[in-house]
């Protein structure tokens, strides 16, 4: 049986997202041209929460998009069962916008690579920044995050899981699992 350790609770997650929201506004000098894009599934939920926080702070509702990166994965031909494809919903023009890409766990960097390629097909934003709730290290590509909720040193045998009310129907928390035969 895998061992479970809780790393963050509901309040810690909320505070981390609040800090990230402030940092996003500070770095981008407000909400002008700012757009949030969450990576399915949990990044999309986090993007909506950050949007609500930004609205609370600045009183402005910034556009939020949802990106499904399945079609841009680099490992499709090496896995044996298809991941279910979901819809990408970006109903605003990203040309010249300041995009903040949001995901839950930042690991190898391959998801972000796929997301950057996908965004590229939608237009040419002014810049793209990356916000993540957890950075667990082990990058396989030269990609870094601009905003990090919490840095967690992990081994490759561990599995970091973010549980969110909206997607998992359970109280927000971040847990770490020990896998016997590797992640």
């Amino acid at each position: 049986m895998p061992e479970l350790t809780q790393l963050m609770d509901k309040d810690l997650i909320r505070r981390a997202l609040m800090r990230i929201s402030h940092e996003i506004l500070e770095k981008n000098k407000g909400t002008s041209e700012l757009c949030l894009v969450g990576i399915r599934t949990r990044g999309a939920v986090l993007a909506e929460r950050v949007q609500a926080m930004v609205q609370e702070i600045e009183g402005v509702s910034v556009p939020v998009g949802i990106l499904d990166i399945t079609l841009y994965r680099d490992d499709l031909t090496s896995i044996s069962a298809q991941p279910v494809v979901h819809e990408t919903l970006i109903d605003f023009d990203i040309e010249g916008k300041k995009i903040v890409l949001i995901d839950d766990v930042f690991f190898t960097g391959r998801t972000i690579r796929a997301a950057l390629n996908a965004l590229n097909d939608f237009g040419r934003p002014a810049h793209i920044q990356l916000a993540v709730l957890i950075d667990r290290g082990h990058r396989e590509l030269p990609i870094r995050a601009d905003f990090v909720g919490k840095n967690i040193p992990t081994s490759l045998q561990q599995n970091v899981k973010v549980i969110l009310q909206e997607t998992d129907g359970d109280e927000d928390r971040v847990i770490i699992k020990e896998n016997k035969n590797g992640g």
Partner: peptide
């Protein structure tokens, strides 16, 4: 991307020849 919580579905069909052969679940997929 091993940490992405993607739902994985069973689809081991190599050909699409006739809907007679497909299950309801496969059609839904």
């Amino acid at each position: 991307m091993a940490d992405k919580n993607k739902k994985v579905i069973q689809w081991d069909r190599r050909n699409i020849l006739d809907l007679k052969d497909l299950s309801k679940e496969e059609i839904d997929l």
